[in-house]
Design a protein around this nucleic acid. Structure first.
Length: 477
RNA sequence: GGGCCCGUAGCUCAGCCUGGUAGAGCGGCGGGCUUUUAACCCGUAGGUCCCGGGUUCAAAUCCCGGCGGGCCCGCCA
């Protein structure tokens, strides 16, 4: 190329009118007015207008441009910066080269939304290319992940990587994806959580670790769930779930401030039956803390501590809730909470102290062993985070694993498998530890006001479609 | 897993109820236009009506099955 292009972003942020610039980008609009042509060029998400006439490029260059440059092509441009009569910063093209050809024209005009969600998600390159608002969602996502790392590093956490392929899955209640390792001749799993490996690192003597990565859960796909999703998990020695609550609210509010410039966001919430409104959500600490049983009392008018088992079972029937692996009072109460309360928690709320039997990796509550020192953080009705004071007693952990095995035998496909290796690790001694998992995709939903997780995942899982080939989007030229 | 809705030109959609020559706008292409920016004006081309089967003299339209998508419910501690 004759000239080395500089980013359009630099040109736009500090325009030296009258100087010559060399830029490159994709042609997204051509407006022809006889012998006077305006072109919109986009480079790395930044748009600038180009201007050409036979007098700027020469008759031949002018004609060649109109004959050969199409929407979607990349061109390299050299020319003078000036303002048009309407006051728009533009580059007067003196020289240009076609540097890459688009064989399909874009399906919609730049700046417009692609309507069909199937096209948007399957051909995300088009969605992002043509719709700056969509690109913005992902800019928020990538910046937020960067700021999460900076925050964790600043708190002294080290970032680690643990296995995604695991011989025994664990750390959550979920069905796994299976895979096969030819080298070993064994069936392995994609992780449903990094939890048990991260706790091994606490056993190893690292005091503060975190990992950002994909988890895989073989479950249904809906507006809140994608089978592969991104979690940030953190573990801190000598900490408990109260410390994790402070860490969570500091993390979310700090990252929001850095990325969005504010700790207030708006999100569409169903304020009453069938009526959705944009509600302002304040992410500043401290967040509300409420015991799970109190939340049921406050938001659903139920008092789990006074209900008999028969009454709990009746409520399960009423709301058509099932407990896989057989009735368990604690799990039933959590189910009722999920069904009746979760979606009502719009402002940031820590729901704390879960029934012990629902939380097999959590340390029993220091004052009442019927409960576990666990919380879930809710924002906009979304479960954003899950955390607890980690169970570091290998004897009790082994007992919980045995109970999970029993549940699995009774048909709970999501019960934990027994992880002997993890129990053995605990037997070498693990300090008191607080652990936290934050759903990154859901955090980005909250930051961007997105009501579907697909909006914040670059390539959400979709069923195999037909090969569109020549009938695909954008007409082949 | 259950319910409802959708699939027609590159895009957005009408036509379907009540069977009879496949339409519009935008985009494309050609022409006009010297400060536009969803430019404008004139002209023009463009179809696997999602796929398969059935009914019928005749199916985009009616019926059955399938595929894909969306929303809701269940499930997701």
């Amino acid at each position: 190329m004759k000239y080395t292009p500089i980013p359009v972003k630099e040109v736009v942020s500090n325009p030296h009118v009258g100087s010559k610039v060399s830029i490159a980008g994709r042609v997204v609009a051509i407006r022809r007015h006889g012998k006077l042509v305006f072109v919109d060029l986009v480079d790395d998400g930044v748009r600038i207008q180009l201007f050409l006439t036979p007098s700027t490029t020469g008759e031949e260059g002018f004609k060649w441009f109109l004959d050969h440059v199409d929407l979607g092509d990349f061109i390299n441009v050299h020319g003078e910066l000036f303002y048009t009569k309407r006051g728009e910063l533009s580059v007067k093209i003196e020289d240009y080269q076609l540097i890459s050809k688009a064989l399909r024209s874009p399906p919609v005009k730049y700046g417009h939304r692609i309507i069909d969600p199937e096209v948007r998600y399957r051909k995300r390159h088009l969605d992002i290319m043509l719709t700056p608002k969509i690109r913005r969602i992902f800019e928020v996502r990538f910046k937020a992940i960067e700021e999460i790392r900076k925050f964790m590093w600043s708190r002294g956490f080290i970032e680690v990587e643990t296995p995604i392929l695991q011989p025994v899955y664990g750390g959550a209640a979920a069905r796994p994806f299976k895979t096969y390792v030819w080298a070993l001749g064994e069936e392995w799993y994609l992780r449903i959580s990094p939890e048990l490996y991260l706790k091994r690192l606490i056993v190893a003597g690292f005091n503060k670790v975190f990992e950002i990565g994909k988890n895989f859960r073989n479950e249904d796909i809906d507006v809140h769930h994608n089978p592969e999703f991104t979690m940030m998990e953190a573990y801190q020695a000598y900490a408990d779930y109260h410390d994790m609550m402070r860490l969570t609210e500091d993390l979310v509010s700090t990252v929001a401030q850095k990325v969005l410039g504010t700790t207030k966001v708006t999100y569409p919430v169903e304020v009453e039956e069938g009526k959705v409104e944009e509600v302002e959500i304040n992410l500043s600490p401290p967040w509300k803390r409420i015991r799970l049983v109190d939340a049921l009392r406050e938001y659903a008018g139920l008092d789990p501590e006074k209900l008999s088992d028969d009454e709990v079972k009746e409520l399960l029937r009423k709301y058509q809730l099932k407990i896989p692996g057989g009735y368990d009072r604690g799990r039933a109460i959590v189910k009722l909470f999920d069904r009746l309360v979760g979606r009502k928690l719009v402002q940031p709320t820590f729901v704390i102290d879960f029934p012990a039997s629902s939380s097999p990796l959590t340390k029993p509550h220091r004052e009442n062993p019927e409960y576990a020192e666990r919380f879930e953080a809710y924002i906009a009705g979304l479960e954003l985070a899950n955390a607890y004071t980690e169970l570091n007693d290998p004897v009790l952990q082994a007992e919980y694993f045995r109970m999970e095995e029993e549940r699995k035998k009774k048909g709970d496909v999501e019960a934990h498998p027994y992880d002997w290796d993890f129990v053995e690790a605990l037997e070498y001694g693990m300090p008191p530890t607080g652990g936290l998992g934050v759903g990154i995709d859901r955090l980005i939903m909250i930051f961007t006001g997105s009501t579907s997780i697909k909006e914040v995942i670059l390539f959400p899982m979709m069923k195999r479609g037909q090969e569109l080939g020549e009938s695909g989007q954008g007409k082949p030229r």
